[in-house]
Design a protein around this nucleic acid. Structure first.
Lengths: 246, 246
DNA sequence: TGCCATATTTTGTCCACACATAAGCACTAA
DNA sequence: TTAGTGCTTATGTGTGGACAAAATATGGCA
């Protein structure tokens, strides 16, 4: 039994038709209306049901396949992938992640500096001559529980940063509001053990496990806007992702 | 000055035209023929140069944008993103990673069992009644240096596994040869500290940092084929990836 | 000179169609 | 009975055209 779709399509909406379909199918999967393993009607039929063309329908399904929610096989059909696939690790910030999860993150700015960049940072950010950086260290907590210790460098020609702003809005929010459109980020995840300094701030024991993350973010004009080195308490945080083969 | 493309297109080749373009542009970027930050000719023009239609050209560029090599902006054009972008973390195995890096990995099978699955594993793999699992633990080294301790469960209705096979070919290779086409994997990366057992096998000190990884892989029919829990020496291994915004 | 309306350029979305190719199935012939 | 052959189905690839929307450049007007 092949499943049909029941998705409202609003042709006057500014959101593209294919994206409405993506959201609709995603919703049906997450709500259980489309069961894991179930087969979908063929592309032509589905397109007809929603009064869309096949290319548009296909574009929507392409996205869902990439996101790991659907699986296609030529000559056979399209299936809802079995269950509980979490969202792909997105280009988002820790603040966003926490807010979405219904938590209330708080931030303490431990150090804040503005000036010329050290050589290695200038290199990583590919800074042109004369451009300086903001350099700051923050401690992020959820409720009373410290979670992450974050050291960041941001080039100073993209936005004006202040201690207060960092405390209240989060770095990514400030940068986005200043018109920075992030396009991609390169990150490396590893592990280390807490030293005295880290342990005291994160309220854990020296020698306990920490997840490390280094990231450099690039905006839509190709500028390396931000780089940072973060450590997270391993008992409270881990990175989750879905890998999809081409 | 907008850059043109000089890519050989073989219309009789079995590899799709849009993919030939992807490879061609990727090659030009990696070889330096297309410099970081440089602007490309517009889509219509590029398509005309290669005697392709605009949709085909666009599909190729879509992939490159997703891969983080290009950046597009409506009304403006398409740019090569500032270099030094590493490849996206792919759905590949540690064995593959090491082999590609020119290393010679070796594997020691520490334990090997075949039988019914424990409840939690049966749940993770969504095993139908009557299907059992192979359960085994391996130590992977590069040269003389131990790198990873890997515990895995594989459902027994997809392929026949043997200790010898695991030692010589790697788990993923065996499964691929048996006709399993992996489509996606869900993984979680975290950190821990080495206990006595792990430390002795990995030839490191108890209490040293380890990177942990849990992964479940799904094949093209939606079956959860394999799940595993791995730990890596943090001083020798980390996960690197590029995140691209939608 | 300075600012706003307009034109141009370029990517974004959408549609209709055609043919290729893989998988599975039923039927036929040895 | 069985292996192979061809049909059917569904996705994969490629083309053509049309219009929308965003960013930028241009030019005219106050």
């Amino acid at each position: 039994m092949a499943a049909s779709l029941n998705i409202p399509i609003d042709r006057s909406s500014p959101v593209p038709l294919y994206h409405q379909v993506v959201q609709g199918i995603e919703g049906m999967i997450r709500s259980g209306a489309l069961e894991p393993g179930s087969k979908l009607e063929n592309e032509i039929e589905l397109a007809a049901q929603l009064n869309l063309s096949r290319p548009t329908m296909r574009k929507a399904m392409d996205e869902l396949v990439r996101a790991g929610l659907l699986v296609r096989k030529r000559g056979v059909g399209t299936q809802v992938v079995a269950s509980q696939v979490r969202r792909h690790l997105e280009l988002s910030s820790l603040w966003d992640d926490l807010s979405r999860g219904g938590k209330a993150p708080s931030t303490k700015v431990l150090a804040f500096r503005h000036g010329p960049a050290e050589a290695d940072i200038a290199d990583t950010l590919q800074l042109p001559p004369g451009v300086g950086v903001y350099h700051f260290t923050r401690l992020r907590s959820v409720g009373e529980k410290p979670l992450a210790l974050m050291e960041n460098w941001v080039r100073d020609d993209v936005a004006e940063l202040t201690e207060g702003g960092l405390r209240e809005r989060g770095m990514y929010q400030i940068l986005r509001d200043a018109g920075v459109n992030f396009r991609l980020a390169n990150q490396r995840i590893g592990a280390t053990v807490a030293d005295e300094y880290q342990a005291s701030l994160l309220e854990t024991a020296p020698g306990s496990a920490l997840v490390t993350m280094e990231r450099t973010a690039v905006d839509d004009t190709g500028r390396h806007v931000e780089t940072g080195r973060h450590v997270y308490r391993a008992d409270s945080y881990s990175f989750e992702m879905t890998l999809v083969s081409r």
